[in-house]
Amino acid sequence: MRTDQILTRLERVFARLDREPERPAHLQTPRMSRHRVVLLGSTFAFYLAIVVAVLTTSWLVRLDWQVMFFRPYEQWPQLHAFLDYLVVLGQRGPTAVMVAAWLGWRSWRQHTLRPLITLGVALLLLNVTVGSVKLGLGRLGPHYATTIGSAELFAGGDIFPSGHTANAVVTWGILAYLASTVTTRRVLSIVSAVVSLSVGATTVYLGTHWVSDVLLGWSAGLLIMLALPWFEPLIAGVEAWVFAKREAMRRRVEAGTLPAPVAAMLVPLLSAGGKWRPPAPAGAPAPAAAATPAPVPAQTAAAAAATGHTALARPTAHLSGRPHLVRPERLPGAPAGSRRPAHGDRAGAARAAARPAAGGS
């Protein structure tokens, strides 16, 4: 009788997780170096200069109007269809889903929540900083401008700074920030810079943002990326808190203090990323540690000694706590009785096989 072990989908996931490597030791958390501090200060000064230039209706506002009257989407209409798709790389919803999927896979591979928590912290900072400035200044976009030459501030708009541009800097820049090697970090930094510059220029082409909106969006996103090392202790604390809560829930599941439906729902989450297994239910037979050979009957041993053969113990089937698939000896609907021919038929068949097939008398 052949037995095949059945593995459920969840058990296959557990087996995969057990073979995954632990968090690589060479991963280093970025620190706030002197070079980063200088870049942060320079970017912040540039940010303030753009805000002051718009508030004072300086030459930057005049440039905004000149580009708006130039109408790039009318100068190069053949690019419109392509740039309509390219600008999606700056929308928060689609980009956050794509990047979160990649970082979630990295978290699963490396048994750490740092990539996902870092993304969440960066997006939270982006929403708070950019959203507050948008609502505070209330600037109208080019399509809703009312007074030529005006900065269109405090008019109930939400266009300054450009959210598309800032989101492109943060969402794609987080991949470079979390890169595990120097070469990968440099390549991803270049890619994120090209994507964010392209998205910002596309919004100006489509007429949805002023030039100054894009400049301030680039600065806002870069400020968040440069300031992220200051939030690394917070990220580590959140990760440690989540793992501590998971261990506490594991102990409650093992102690049986949770209702059975709740424990059944929590088992997949508590078992992911480690070798912990839920306790066996009460009354379930414990799996055998090792299969012991079955004793050889006395008649079999005596017959083996008379014929000169060694009596071997028949190995027993592998015992496991999981269900097994047993192959039936007979298909349903097959006639009853033995499938072997009678003894006389077997003897006749043996004599027929010994007779030569052709030739001879």
Rank of each mutant, 00 (worst) to 15 (best):
V169E: 03
L89S: 01
P268H: 04
P279L: 10
I235P: 01
K245R: 15
G221Y: 02
W76T: 12
P287R: 12
L137C: 03
V253Q: 07
S192W: 01
L325C: 08
R340N: 08
L116D: 09
G200A: 09
V61F: 04
D84A: 03
S132W: 13
R16N: 10
T181P: 06
H80Y: 14
G256W: 07
A353G: 03
R114K: 13
A155P: 03
V99Q: 02
A298K: 05
P341G: 13
G283H: 04
T292M: 08
L125Q: 07
R185S: 11
S150G: 10
I117D: 07
E20S: 12
V169N: 07
G308L: 10
S338P: 12
P295S: 11
V88L: 11
P115D: 10
G120F: 15
T95C: 00
T147R: 13
I224D: 00
P233K: 05
T183K: 14
Y177V: 06
E239A: 09
I6M: 07
T208S: 14
V88C: 02
S338L: 09
P72H: 04
S196L: 02
V67W: 08
G274Q: 01
A248E: 08
S320I: 05
A353S: 09
G256H: 11
R322Q: 10
S338Q: 07
D64K: 09
A248M: 08
L40Q: 07
P142K: 10
R106E: 14
L216Y: 02
A263S: 05
P285M: 05
T292Y: 00
G157A: 03
A350D: 10
H26S: 15
G221C: 07
S198E: 09
A347Q: 14
V211L: 15
Q66G: 10
A240C: 03
L325R: 14
T202K: 04
S189D: 11
M1C: 11
S132D: 07
P259D: 00
E11V: 02
R62E: 12
G90E: 01
P161D: 10
P259N: 00
L63V: 11
A334C: 06
F154S: 02
R251S: 12
A353H: 05
S219A: 15
A353I: 04
N127D: 14
A264D: 00
A305D: 05
L223E: 08
A244W: 13
L125W: 03
W230S: 04
W59I: 11
V87E: 06
G141W: 02
K275L: 11
F14I: 09
L63R: 08
G163A: 09
L175T: 08
P297V: 08
V253T: 06
F160H: 08
I148T: 14
V128L: 15
E152H: 06
H143S: 15
G156V: 06
A280E: 13
A334V: 12
M265L: 14
W210T: 04
V170Y: 03
P21D: 03
T316E: 15
G200N: 05
L331V: 14
L48N: 05
G156A: 06
A176G: 14
A302E: 08
D345P: 00
R346N: 08
M1E: 14
L206Y: 01
G348S: 12
T56L: 13
A263M: 01
S361Y: 06
L319C: 04
L48A: 15
R23F: 09
L124R: 03
V38L: 13
G104R: 04
W172S: 03
T29N: 12
